[in-house]
């Protein structure tokens, strides 16, 4: 079994009147030490997937209807809340998109790193040892340890994201879920943060899920890639499957690539995907992508495609049926 194995996870949000189908039979696997890029547009369900792994879905509205999440042999869905609390932040950490709002403005950054360490202090380290670890963590992410007494507002966006990373890594997690960690940053700062994350991943021997909408970031940092559309993985495979030119691709993935202005080409017009993401309260019959798909057939309108695999490269589309298996 894989290190992280998500099978047929189905999650909905309800408010009494409407039901948002956020994840539909969502399946994902991640091996130890690998980085998986989870790609998709706003509302595709990327963040919901991350929150479901962490069991952080909003209590009142979010509900898991079925499926399993297995992490390092343990079924996360059946853990007691106290047991989950040990996993969360200790074994699996998460970095959120916006560094400006994920830090507490009235605590110094040192206190915030300390807090995490204190909560997960399994080895019973002394107060002083924990503060030494705070210094160590700050140094690790490239912030002078003297700055632990500063408050978040005294840091720039890039520096804040470094602090957030330091908090996430403080307990040496085995899995790091990074939810758009650089979207709020400028490109030169983004390059710095990505390079640092890559280095730390090697050093600490972690697995990572990189949630992003930027295929460029995926190309730079990930070993495996999974594309989410309307709450399901429509394509997954290795880095090579996605970025070597002549490979087979799901029509949506092809559309995503066509939408990016390419720096190396002189193409004047982009070839965007027509139309919009489907309304998650009212998903289309058959293939979720069919209303926007250029290769749509009659069958796509009625029958939901199954996943077709070839050499680890999985595509959920009727077009690839014949060559499957």
């Amino acid at each position: 079994m894989s290190f992280l194995d998500i099978r047929d996870l189905t999650v909905v949000y309800t408010n009494g009147r409407e039901t948002v189908h956020a994840l539909n039979d969502f399946s994902l696997r991640l091996e130890r030490g690998k980085t998986l890029g989870l790609v998709g547009e706003t509302g595709a369900g990327k963040t919901t997937a991350a929150l479901s792994i962490m069991r952080l879905l909003p209590e009142r509205t979010g509900r898991v209807l079925g499926g399993s999440v297995t992490f390092d042999g343990a079924d996360l869905r059946s853990l007691k809340e106290e047991e989950m609390r040990v996993v969360r932040g200790g074994k699996i950490s998460m970095i959120f998109q916006d560094p400006m709002t994920s830090l507490n403005p009235v605590l110094t950054v040192g206190e915030q790193i300390f807090e995490t360490l204190e909560l997960h202090n399994i080895e019973n380290r002394s107060h002083q040892q924990l503060w030494e670890r705070v210094d160590e963590m700050l140094a690790l992410v490239g912030i002078p340890p003297e700055r632990k007494k500063d408050y978040p507002h005294q840091f720039s966006g890039g520096m804040k994201q470094r602090v957030v990373i330091a908090i996430a890594l403080a307990c040496s997690p085995q899995l790091l879920i990074a939810d758009e960690p650089t979207t709020a940053l400028d490109v030169t700062i983004q390059a710095q943060v990505l390079a640092m994350m890559d280095e730390l991943k090697q050093k600490l021997d972690m697995s990572m899920i990189m949630i992003t909408h930027d295929l460029g970031i995926v190309a730079q940092t990930c070993d495996d890639v999974a594309v989410v559309y309307a709450g399901e993985i429509i394509e997954s495979g290795s880095f090579e499957d996605f970025f070597m030119q002549d490979k087979r691709r799901h029509p949506y993935t092809r559309g995503l690539f066509g939408s990016i202005p390419n720096i190396d080409s002189r193409e004047r017009r982009l070839t965007p995907i027509e139309g919009l993401m489907p309304d998650p309260t009212n998903l289309p019959e058959g293939c979720r992508f069919h209303p926007r798909c250029p290769d749509c057939t009659e069958r796509c309108r009625t029958e939901r495609p199954t996943a077709h695999e070839r050499g680890g490269h999985v595509i959920r589309c009727h077009l690839f049926e014949k060559e499957g298996e």
């Binding site: 400028d186 390059a191 710095q192 390079a195 460029g216 190309a219 730079q220 690539f257 990016i260």
Partner: peptide
Amino acid sequence: ALLSAIPVPNASARERKPQLIRGEI
């Protein structure tokens, strides 16, 4: 530095090491 910092979505991206610039604005 700006040009080399853009993540490019193709296979050659791996070999291309961005020229990192120190510090911030």
